[in-house]
Computed example of a mutant assay.
Amino acid sequence: MSGLIIFLNGTSSSGKSSIARELLSVLDETCFHLAVDQFHAMRSKRELADEAELRAVMLRTWSGFHRAVAGMAAAGNNVVVDHLFSERWRLDECLELFPAADVVLVGVRCPLPELERREAERGDRPVGLAARQFVQVHAHGVYDIEVDTSTATPLECALQIKEFLPRRPSPTAFERLAAAGSSAVPAAR
C-alpha cells in the first residue's frame, strides 16, 4: 500500500516549510517532512569547479530527492513534500515516479511583493530568487487545493489542507497532469 504524498509547490519564501511543520503537528496519521533543502544541506561542502559542475550536482540532488520521496511513499509512509516545480522536468519526473492517485498537489501562493519582502528579511536566499521562480512554479496550472500564505498563517493553511484531505478529488491534479502528458509545456533539463 502506497503512502499519501502531500506535495507543497511554491516559490522560495512562500511558506512551504512552515506549512509542512504545521501539517506534521495537525495530521492524524504519521507523516514525514521531506524537503529538497534538507537534501542540499546533506551535501559535502567542498568547492565545485565551475557552474557546469554545480548544475550537474544540483540535477542529481533533485533527481535523487524525487526518488527518495517515491521510495518513502512506496514503503507505505505518508510524506509531506516541500519542493517546487521551477523547471518543467521536475514535474515530469515526479509524474513518472509518484503514484498519481496518491498525490495531493497543493499550490502555495503568495504575491510577489510579499515574497520579495520575506526574501530580503530572511537574508539566506539569493536576491530575486522568488521572482525568477514565480511564473514557472505554477505554470502547470492544476492543483487539488491552493493556499495563500499572505492571508493565512501556516497553521491556518495546514488546517485547510487537513480539512480538504477526506474529500480529495478523483481524478487528482497529478492524474490530470499525467493524462495531459508533458507536451503542454516544453521540458527543460
Score class of each variant (00 low, 15 high):
Met1Asp: 15
Ser2Cys: 11
Ser2Ile: 12
Leu4Glu: 14
Ile5Tyr: 00
Ile6Ser: 03
Phe7Trp: 12
Asn9Lys: 01
Ser12Arg: 07
Ser13His: 04
Gly15Met: 05
Ser18Ala: 15
Ile19Leu: 11
Arg21Lys: 10
Leu23Ser: 03
Leu34Glu: 04
Val36Tyr: 02
His40Ile: 14
Glu47Tyr: 12
Leu48Asp: 14
Ala49Pro: 14
Ala49Tyr: 09
Asp50Ile: 10
Glu51Asn: 12
Glu53Tyr: 06
Arg55Asn: 08
Val57Lys: 00
Val57Thr: 13
Arg60Gly: 14
Gly64Leu: 04
Phe65Gln: 06
His66Trp: 05
Arg67Trp: 06
Arg67Lys: 05
Val69Met: 01
Val69Phe: 00
Gly71Thr: 02
Met72Thr: 12
Ala74His: 01
Asp82Lys: 02
Asp82Ala: 09
Leu84Thr: 06
Trp89Gly: 09
Arg90His: 11
Leu91Arg: 01
Leu91Val: 12
Asp92Trp: 00
Glu93Phe: 04
Cys94Tyr: 01
Cys94Arg: 07
Leu95Gln: 10
Leu95Arg: 10
Glu96Ala: 05
Leu97Ser: 11
Leu97His: 07
Ala100Cys: 14
Val104Cys: 09
Leu105Lys: 04
Leu105Gln: 10
Val106Asn: 08
Gly107His: 07
Arg109Thr: 11
Pro111Gly: 03
Pro111Leu: 04
Pro113Gly: 07
Glu116Arg: 08
Arg117His: 12
Ala120Glu: 15
Ala120Met: 15
Glu121Leu: 06
Asp124Phe: 11
Asp124Val: 10
Arg125Leu: 14
Ala131Val: 09
Arg132His: 03
Phe134Pro: 05
Val137Gln: 03
His140Asn: 10
Tyr143Phe: 13
Tyr143Leu: 03
Asp144Ser: 08
Asp148His: 00
Thr149Phe: 01
Ser150His: 09
Ser150Thr: 13
Thr151Val: 14
Glu156Gly: 10
Cys157Ile: 01
Ala158Thr: 05
Gln160Arg: 12
Ile161Leu: 02
Phe164Met: 11
Pro169Ile: 12
Thr172Gln: 02
Ala173Lys: 03
Phe174Asn: 06
Ala179Tyr: 14
Gly181Asp: 11
Ser182Trp: 00
Ser182Ile: 10
Val185Ala: 12
Pro186Tyr: 05
Pro186Arg: 15
